[in-house]
Nucleic acid binder design. Structure first.
Lengths: 190, 190
DNA sequence: GTCTATAGACAGATAGAC
DNA sequence: GTCTATCTGTCTATAGAC
């Protein structure tokens, strides 16, 4: 058995959080699904909040690792954006529970605004870089960058949710292309 | 005193739901803030879930009434979109708590997917009409309409949240105009 | 590290007087 | 309609044996 009990607790928590919501999920039910005693949960995580916190960081890092490019260059910005966008959408389709959890926690009060902003800045710094290069090349619009990042995140979440809620369109090229076009033209120069 | 106890309970619930989250808010604390006895809450609402449900419908109808135009015509689609967008943003800025509640509940498990979709379809019917007219006039892109509606809602939520989280930009014309341009160009024909 | 057992607080909801 | 009082169940977290 290579999976540790700590990891089994995180997996069980993700499943139950997505199914019932974070606050409505008891630590007892998490431990039960993970086939672990109640006390063991509190050995690995000093509180329920600490478990949520750890799970959030884990998911965020996984997404970041999945979509961040090896290297950003000055070549065709649109094409680099295309690859990042599609890797992000693919990740969410492959991991619908993780996207759902990410969505819930992003729009809830479970985490402080500061922590969310910090993780966003750290993990997704390459996005800001890409936008800045695109602005210098007069490809991306000169809107305030903080507003653009929020809009990009909003479109990623709404598009991913759409494909998860309507799986029949996941391999529909019309829908896939449209989603990217909406994203790109939202941020492009007019 | 014109405000009924039922309304005071709804007001108190909104405040506490936004401050602490829906599940983390006890019915006792709602009753206390409303200066009402615990049992009175259960006289007006048969359960906590019924209270949440009523509050959701109230907020949704208020937003809809605020932004829906008297009449949709075939004149300049961009301008009609401009008015609707700004009325929506203004509503959210004037009612930050209501937007926050709307955001939380939209992305949580507190309400069934069916109810949300039903209310959304009813409320946003005039938006679908506007998009269809814009497509006929070759102004709006021919993306699938369900995808466009989800994108529009995602941009509304991310933009509203941005202004509420950064109130110093509410009257900044650069930010306000940029937010609308992002929204419009996302849906416009390339 | 993992377990059992339980403390201690608090939740949602009901009953019945006024 | 509104109140007080209270029931029953559940929650997070801890203590201590193994």
């Amino acid at each position: 058995m290579t999976t540790t009990k700590k990891q089994m607790l995180l997996d069980a928590a993700l499943t139950l959080f997505v199914a019932n919501g974070i606050d409505s999920t008891s630590t007892a039910s998490i431990a039960k699904l993970a086939n672990v005693a109640n006390g063991t949960l509190f050995h690995h995580f000093k509180s329920k909040a600490a478990l949520v916190h750890t799970l959030y960081l884990t998911v965020k890092q996984e997404l970041s690792a999945q979509i961040s490019p090896q290297k950003i260059n000055n070549d065709c910005i649109n094409e680099q954006a295309y690859f990042i966008w599609n890797k992000a959408i693919d990740w969410s389709i492959t991991n619908p529970e993780k996207l759902q959890f990410f969505k819930q926690i992003t729009y809830s009060k479970a985490l402080s605004v500061e922590l969310r902003a910090e993780v966003m800045a750290q993990e997704l710094s390459f996005l800001s870089q890409l936008i800045t290069i695109g602005q210098q090349q007069k490809i991306i619009a000169d809107y305030p960058i903080d507003l653009m990042l929020d809009a990009a995140q909003g479109l990623f979440i709404s598009s991913s949710s759409f494909f998860i809620d309507h799986p029949q369109y996941i391999n529909n090229q019309d829908y896939r292309t449209s989603a990217f076009k909406i994203f790109l033209s939202a941020l492009s120069r007019g």
